[in-house]
Design a protein around this nucleic acid. Sequence first.
DNA 1: TAGATATTTAGACAAATATCTAATTATTAT
DNA 2: ATAATAATTAGATATTTGTCTAAATATCTA
Lengths: 86, 86
Amino acid sequence: MNIFFKALNDPTRREILELLNKGDLTAGEIADCFSMTKPSISHHLDLLRQADLVVSIREGQYIKYSINTTVFDGVVVWLMQFKKST
Amino acid sequence: MNIFFKALNDPTRREILELLNKGDLTAGEIADCFSMTKPSISHHLDLLRQADLVVSIREGQYIKYSINTTVFDGVVVWLMQFKKST
DNA sequence: TAGATATTTAGACAAATATCTAATTATTAT
DNA sequence: ATAATAATTAGATATTTGTCTAAATATCTA
């Protein structure tokens, strides 16, 4: 839970997730969507990967990133606990 | 969204929410549940209040805190966007 | 093999964060 | 009024975080 909220506690990383939700992208394509250096984006991708929110596979010269939505289930359950008691 | 994830990006604050989900508590009662000074807890409560996740009202000498679960709705919607496409 | 492209890693640095102690404000009760 | 209790605010400090530049790694192509 910790690493998840840490990963989501940044607007750039949340935007990356929204981008990947529309389709897979390479690291470079993701970086092109932001006014930030590639190393910075790479670092954000690393945090998202640590939280298991994205998966990466090398495709030749490129590294392609995909969103992993299964992680959200646990968090939604955690959030829903607060709505039960109504 | 920013302030919400910021507020939730701390285990102590998440635990405070879980406590308040069982019932209202005063600042002191909350602090007693943690091995941390009262000023530190007060600071966490302040962040939770900024995120509108808790509400506080003074009751005489005490200040009572309640959880505000309405905020979760928006976040669950945000999280659910990632599950739609399945 | 050399050079070009894609990406990450390393190291530095400023800004944000979590925590503490000490001081302040607010309320109650003697 | 004074003292006691509840809670916050202020200020200090160590740690974490986001960003950058420079360097390193990996792949492709001529």
